[in-house]
Amino acid sequence: MTTPPRRLLFIASIGNQKPYRFTRHSAGHVLLDALLPLLRSRFGAVDQYYTTYYSPSFMNESGPKLVRNLNKWLSQADKLVGPSRTGFEVPAPIGVPATLVILHDELEAPLGKVRVKRGGSEAASLRGHRGLISSFESLRGKGMYPVKRGRDLSVLRIGVGIGRPESREKNAVADYVLSEMGAGERAAVQRAAEPVVSVLEDEFYWEESSKS
């Protein structure tokens, strides 16, 4: 990173844990696995400017722990980053601008296709994605988003396509997302890390007033 960023990034993947760690519904975790070495080579080791987080909860319960850990990390980062650090113009007690990046599976996108959306349901439908719904419910419950209390917090949703079954039946979709990805599917999700790391690089310098 040649110049100090203007935002902090909390990069979180949501999905499921064992025995569903490598199912289609956990594509966000697989994407973060592939992102880690790219993040380190592009931006250096995890430090006060960004961190990564794998949700330890099942998808439908992602929100509470995610937001708790986000809050904890931001509080620690505020102590390290302030007006004395070039690039940040907001006094540390108020909190420097930050973005919560949520990596998730995208049922409505072709396999490996990356879709980026800023904001919650007020900006674009969550399409019934229970992990996203839980995350935004928790953010709203803590008064962090969309209401901003003392901090410019943006949310960037990065979905990686997993395709969908031909059948639109509820049980067919559930079986599909909870089935383990094949080697080719995992490789397609992993390849998505390249365009995603470029999105994250831009996000370090994104400003609320800028067009996105």
Rank of each mutant, 00 (worst) to 15 (best):
A174P: 00
F22R: 15
E180M: 12
Y176V: 12
Y205I: 02
S154L: 13
P4Y: 09
S212M: 11
R7C: 13
Y53N: 09
Y49Q: 11
R21K: 08
K113P: 00
P83H: 01
T86I: 10
P93G: 10
S138A: 15
F43A: 08
L74Q: 12
S84M: 09
L36F: 02
H25P: 00
P91C: 08
S62V: 10
S134L: 06
G161D: 02
A183N: 02
L200G: 04
F88D: 03
W206G: 05
R7N: 15
V114K: 09
F136Q: 00
G82A: 08
E108Q: 06
L132T: 07
K72E: 14
K148E: 02
A183Y: 00
Q17S: 05
T2K: 14
G82T: 09
Y20N: 04
G87C: 10
L66A: 12
R140I: 03
D47L: 02
S125K: 08
A45R: 14
R7M: 04
R157S: 07
S167L: 04
G182F: 07
R68D: 10
F88G: 07
S212R: 15
G163Y: 02
S75P: 04
S167R: 09
V67M: 11
L66P: 05
T51Y: 07
G182S: 12
L9S: 12
L8G: 12
F58N: 03
T99I: 15
G87V: 03
R7Q: 07
T23H: 13
S75F: 08
Y54W: 13
A34T: 06
P165T: 13
R40W: 05
V155I: 15
V197L: 05
R42G: 05
I11R: 05
H129N: 14
R42D: 08
G141R: 02
S121Y: 04
L32I: 07
G141K: 01
P91F: 02
P4N: 15
N71R: 14
R191E: 15
N16A: 09
V199P: 02
I11P: 05
E106N: 03
G120W: 01
A34E: 01
E122K: 03
K170T: 05
P146M: 00
I158C: 11
P110R: 10
L153M: 03
P56I: 08
V197H: 12
N171F: 13
L8V: 11
E207K: 15
A124V: 13
P64S: 10
S212P: 10
H29P: 01
G143W: 02
G141N: 04
S84Y: 05
G63M: 07
S62M: 10
T3R: 14
F136L: 06
V46S: 04
Y176H: 00
D105K: 06
R149Q: 13
K65C: 09
K113D: 05
V116H: 03
Q48W: 07
V90F: 00
P37L: 00
L36P: 01
G15W: 13
L153H: 02
N16T: 10
S134P: 00
G131N: 11
Y50Q: 01
Q48G: 07
A109W: 03
E137G: 04
E108I: 06
L107E: 04
V160A: 10
S84D: 14
S154N: 14
E166N: 12
A192S: 09
G82W: 10
P37R: 03
Y54N: 09
P146A: 03
A124E: 14
T99L: 13
L103I: 10
V155A: 14
P56L: 03
N71K: 14
R164D: 00
V114T: 11
V196G: 11
L156D: 09
R186H: 00
